[in-house]
């Protein structure tokens, strides 16, 4: 479903190369995890896939269901079914969380030629989803992410993901800054969306999220490349021994 081939990326403003040939395929219905040391390029990969500016693709491709993502505007990628849960969700003062969600859902529906969802229907859907994620009504009324705790921001990302029903979900360190209870909520939210068709790319530092969201495949990224790919046991190996052994083994 998501096919990344030999992706090379540098910073637009500097001569700094960040991704040095990434190859990765996520099949429909599968959960892939990417682990790797800080600064290895994990967030950059997620940003480039979702169309953030400031990066230059110098080679390679990334397709979603056969369509080239790299040629699309960010909103087109979203309408095509891509979703990124941000490592650092953005605060938007003055825009209500609910307004934001409804604008996003309807914009995507419009782009896909589907009818808008009515305000009443939407409210019902959001309330139900919010309840599952332990997000209270007050949080829905507040401006997007403003004054939210770290955990609330991450749960809000999962709420957006649930409402937008993407084909391909990328989660960038959604577990960072979460306590055990919040992590379980987030993991349950993600697991509820595993329907055998949707693909997931879960970026994380820690094994503990992967105890809750069981990956099919685990990749290790270092210095802009996927250096090792394996099953869930690879995550446990990292948890026990760190990255040093794997890095040494590859070199």
């Amino acid at each position: 479903m998501l096919e990344i081939k030999n992706l090379h990326v540098k910073l637009e403003e500097e001569d700094k190369v960040i991704l040095k040939g990434v190859d990765l395929t996520v099949e429909a219905g599968k959960v892939h995890a990417i682990m790797g040391p800080n600064g290895s390029g994990k967030s950059t990969l997620s940003y480039v896939l979702s169309g953030r500016g400031g990066y230059e693709v110098t080679g390679g491709s990334a397709t979603l269901d056969g369509a080239e993502l790299l040629d699309m505007e960010p909103e087109e990628r979203a309408a095509a079914g891509l979703f990124l849960a941000f490592q650092y969700p953005v605060e938007i003062p003055g825009v209500g969380n609910m307004t934001f969600l409804r604008t996003a859902v309807n914009a995507q529906r419009k782009a896909r030629g589907e009818p808008e969802v009515s305000a009443a229907e939407f409210l019902k859907l959001v309330r139900a989803q919010a309840k599952l994620l332990n997000i209270d009504a007050e949080m829905l009324k507040r401006p997007v992410n403003v004054g939210f705790s770290g955990g609330e921001k991450k749960r809000n990302e999962i709420l957006q993901m649930a409402m937008l029903e993407p084909r391909m979900c990328i989660l960038d360190e959604t577990d960072s800054g979460l306590d055990v209870d919040a992590m379980r909520l987030v993991a349950d939210g993600v697991n509820a969306l595993r329907d055998g068709k949707r693909g997931f790319l879960v970026i994380t530092h820690y094994q503990r999220l992967l105890d809750h969201i069981k990956p099919d495949v685990v990749h290790i990224m270092a210095d802009g490349r996927i250096i090792k790919t394996g099953g869930p046991e690879l995550a446990r190996e990292v948890e026990e021994n760190g990255y040093a052994d794997i890095l040494a083994e590859v070199q």
Binding site: E75, F83, G94
Partner: peptide, 19 residues
């Protein structure tokens, strides 16, 4: 952030102006 949720550029700009 807004565009990554599917909000088209012009609409996203308008939301941020109101914000």
């Amino acid at each position: 952030y807004l565009r990554s949720r599917g909000v088209p550029l012009a609409e996203a700009q308008a939301l941020l102006v109101l914000s």
